[in-house]
Design a protein around this nucleic acid. Structure first.
Length: 258
DNA sequence: ATGGTAGCGCTGCTA
């Protein structure tokens, strides 16, 4: 099973490129983030014609997450478990059963700066995600939590660690939040396949960062042990970051022998 | 050199 994640930075602006990518990458499951669409504007028919069922959770303009699947899509849940009235603007979590795997598409809050209330909200959000997993699934079952975590788990996941002192995405507290997900039972499947390599999934649009290799690896596929054991191969598709009107993120995919 | 670009949507915010 090929599982992919891609922050598309507006699905309205990116639909053609997503369709093109689906046609050649042929993922079984694609988690998308930052669709920036309301549910009523989600182009489900375009994906249906390519053979994908889909689910979307979005309030428009900001955030928005989706799951596409051609191996089944069941038990779709938007937001955290037990959320009585999810704020559509804060649409950052969507979960579904896809071919025997509990898949979540996540868009973790950016945090903005270490002294911002949004940074505290980011830490709370990651803690809530751990609670959500505890409440909804088991670490000995096949679980894949995929998305833009807005955290670079290790120094090798940023182009220059000295440039990320006292900044979001690399702070001890953010990495500790990822460590708590690991303690729950989720591992970084791409890192397990690629060891020490420094491969990035996001590059700022500005200042030629992509062509200068100034990026970060913040788009992660975190999986439980049954999935880790089945992980065979992975790719960050940098070609999808090139050419006309790319997202600032590249898609990340992993093949699991399931 | 604290710049630079993109998306949304119409003013400045978010990333």
């Amino acid at each position: 099973m090929r599982i992919a994640t891609w922050n598309v930075n507006s699905l309205k602006a990116r639909l053609e490129r997503v369709e093109e990518w689906l046609a050649y990458a042929k993922p079984d499951v694609l988690c998308m983030q930052e669709t920036k669409l309301a549910n009523s504007a989600f182009p489900a028919m375009a994906f249906e014609s390519l053979g994908y069922e889909s689910a979307h959770h979005g309030g428009g303009r900001w955030n928005g997450v989706a799951i596409l699947s051609r191996v089944g899509l069941a038990d779709v849940v938007a937001g955290f478990s037990g959320e009585t009235e999810p704020d559509p603007i804060e649409s950052r979590l969507l979960s579904a059963d896809c071919g025997g795997v509990r898949v979540s598409s996540v868009y973790v809050p950016n945090g903005r700066s270490l002294d911002s209330e949004h940074y505290q909200a980011k830490l709370t959000w990651l803690s809530d995600l751990t609670d959500h997993l505890t409440n909804t699934c088991r670490p000995d079952a096949p679980v894949a939590v995929c998305g833009d975590f807005n955290v670079a788990p290790q120094d090798r996941d940023v182009f220059d660690p000295t440039k990320f002192k006292a900044s979001t995405h690399t702070s001890d507290a953010e990495r500790a939040a990822i460590a708590r997900l690991r303690e729950w039972g989720l591992d970084d499947a791409f890192r397990a396949l690629y060891g020490q390599e420094r491969l990035f999934s996001w590059w700022d649009y500005r200042a030629g960062d992509f062509h200068q290799g100034r990026g970060m690896r913040i788009d992660l596929i975190l999986t439980t042990q049954p999935m880790m054991k089945a992980a065979r191969w992975g790719l960050i598709d940098r070609n999808a970051r090139k050419g006309k009107s790319p997202s600032d993120h590249a898609p990340v995919l992993i093949d699991f022998e399931l």
